[in-house]
C-alpha cells in the first residue's frame, strides 16, 4: 500500500506550508495519472491516519484522476486510455502511442481565513 508513503509525503509538505502561512489547512487537492493511480479509499484512510494529532487532522483531501491520452497508430484517433479496455475507441486497434501519464502532484492547499 504505497498510499501510506504518499500520505506521509503530502503531510510533511502541508505541515511545512502551514507553518510558513501561519494558518490552519482545511483542504488540499492532489492528482494522479492512470499508471500511478491511487486507490481513493486507501488514500483517504492513509491520510486520515497520518494526519491524526497534527495540524492537518480532519482536513479534506480531494483526489483528481487525470486521464491518460493515447493516439492510435492505425486510424490516428486520440482517445482516453481505459486500463480495462486497452483498445482504440474508434477502431479497436491495440496499437497506439501513449501521451505522458500525469505525475503524482500536490496541486493546492486551502487554509482557514
Amino acid at each position: 500500500m504505497h498510499e501510506t508513503a504518499v500520505a506521509e509525503s503530502i503531510l510533511n509538505t502541508i505541515i511545512a506550508q502551514a507553518e510558513t502561512a501561519d494558518a490552519k489547512p482545511v483542504s488540499a487537492v492532489i492528482s494522479c495519472g492512470q499508471f500511478n493511480a491511487l486507490n481513493d479509499e486507501c488514500m483517504q484512510f492513509a491520510f486520515e491516519a497520518a494526519a491524526a494529532g497534527t495540524v492537518c487532522e480532519s482536513m479534506l483531501l480531494n483526489i483528481k484522476h487525470v486521464p491518460l491520452r493515447a493516439k492510435c497508430k492505425k486510424c490516428d484517433a486520440t482517445f482516453e486510455f481505459d486500463v480495462y479496455k486497452p483498445a482504440c475507441s474508434q477502431c479497436d486497434s491495440m496499437e497506439f502511442d501513449f501521451k505522458r501519464d500525469a505525475p503524482l502532484l500536490l496541486e493546492t492547499i486551502e487554509f482557514e481565513e
Binding site: A5, V6, I10, Q17, A23, L106
Partner: peptide, 14 residues
C-alpha cells in the same frame, strides 16, 4: 487563502 504548489509528491524519494 489558497496556495498553488503543483509539487511532485514523493519528491524526497526522487
Amino acid at each position: 487563502m489558497k496556495i498553488s504548489l503543483n509539487q511532485k509528491i514523493l519528491s524526497r524519494n526522487e
